[in-house]
Design a protein around this nucleic acid. Structure first.
Lengths: 239, 239
DNA sequence: TTGCAATTCAAACAGTTGTATGAAACTATC
DNA sequence: GATAGTTTCATACAACTGTTTGAATTGCAA
């Protein structure tokens, strides 16, 4: 046997008869190094040689443990995706239980954008690389990720439902736009925080994560709850 | 002589003594093909060989006319950047003249996000590749572009000033956040229109460009003009 | 037409990429 | 301690990248 890289046998991923897996230390080292490098430089700027150098392992280890570069990226993305989604859902569930199954819209949006914003912008660097990796993944959308990414839709749908529950009178289409805008603001703030910092001459405090979250939540909530101008009004504005 | 690629001589870019430039047809063909391919596939997925194949020219023509791949990208970006900025400023100027030097905030934001949204999402495909190229450029931020991109800041500052003029009572920091959020929503809508379409099961009409612009403008204006919750309120919401 | 520069072209270059190979080193069971 | 499995390692491979080269071809002025 020369290639384990995942499900080699059929049933249990646990130890089989003749004890195969010894340490998994190099496997973990590769995952950590890859996540870190991808998060800070982006996929197209990081080679397998960069990764193995940072991990202190041999070049062939990647293909031995993961099969290919793409499968490494995919595993990274799946793992982090699950973690992020769980974080979001926990916050959502807590908010819904607080309100007897119906959370205020602000809490729903906060559950949606909070974890990622905290992870990426927070001064505490714990989980920062994980969050930044996810941002990279959503920015570059490299082929191995693109295939998996569709699952995110069903995850987001849960939040759309929660939002609809908390705003029963808002048309469904507006819910989707609100969700979309909330993610857009959170996302872009992470990705382009440098530009905002320069543009405002440092006036926008990007270390005040909770303040930023509040801004995003407020803006998205307002867009949802305030009736937007009618088509006639909009047309007049355009003129 | 073997390399013209831009400013070979000193003063005039017009014809010099011994008539140099004959047709510039291949040069234009390269620019068009490159813009198109970069716009639809992204920088990291397009090679010079792809470009010259699409342009119907020889591989060496790129280095002959532009010097290097990076200089080709840079020229493309500078050209399109100037065009986009001019479009925005024209719309802003028109709006300001309409209101005697003080345009309503909606008009300012519309001038900021309108041209790009129209270019990328409009059913009329004229200028679509140009706008999409700019989006790619801002997404991938490849090295040759990163250097030039700082100029965009001073361009955006003009809009910050216009916004401040139309909302004199709003704190400066809020102006920057509003500008940032407006761009974020417009930008993400272009980049991830596919996800929104899937998430909403086609409910969000992405062909209705003016409707989308109205949504972005309204959301951003609301975020600017509606007093956001005080810190105490926000804190209570977080709990 | 002749001559000279600008332009095009096929081919090759040097560097980097992800992947594959086969031998060595290790680990744990017998 | 021998053995069979795994993991590691140095190295090679084939494919692809942007770039260069030098010879052909073109276009225009004399």
């Amino acid at each position: 046997m020369l290639t384990p890289h995942g499900a080699s046998d059929k049933a249990h991923p646990t130890k089989q008869s003749t004890a195969p897996m010894a340490t998994d230390r190099t496997r973990a080292a590769i995952l950590n190094a890859a996540e870190q490098l991808y998060a800070e430089r982006g996929f197209s700027e990081v080679t397998l040689r960069d990764i193995v150098a940072a991990a202190g392992v041999n070049l062939a280890a990647v293909n031995y443990h993961f099969g290919s570069k793409d499968e490494l990226i995919a595993e990274l993305f799946v793992t982090r995706s699950i973690a992020t989604n769980r974080e979001r859902l926990n916050e959502l569930k807590a908010a819904e239980e607080n309100g007897g199954g119906r959370a205020p819209i602000e809490a729903v949006i906060r559950a949606l954008v909070g974890p990622t914003l905290r992870g990426c912008l927070g001064p505490d660097r714990e989980g920062a690389t994980a969050a930044r990796f996810m941002i990279r993944a959503s920015i570059e959308a490299v082929p191995p990720i693109r295939k998996i990414r569709n699952r995110e839709i069903s995850h987001l749908r849960r939040f759309a439902v929660a939002m609809q529950r908390s705003l029963p009178d808002i048309p469904e289409v507006d819910i989707y736009w609100g969700l979309h805008f909330a993610l857009a603001m959170a996302h872009q703030t992470i990705r382009d925080s440098e530009r905002l910092d320069k543009l405002s001459n440092g006036l926008c405090d990007l270390d005040d994560v909770e303040g930023i979250i509040a801004r995003v939540v407020t803006a998205a909530s307002l867009a949802l709850t305030t009736k937007r101008p009618t088509t006639a009004t909009a047309k007049a504005q355009r003129a």
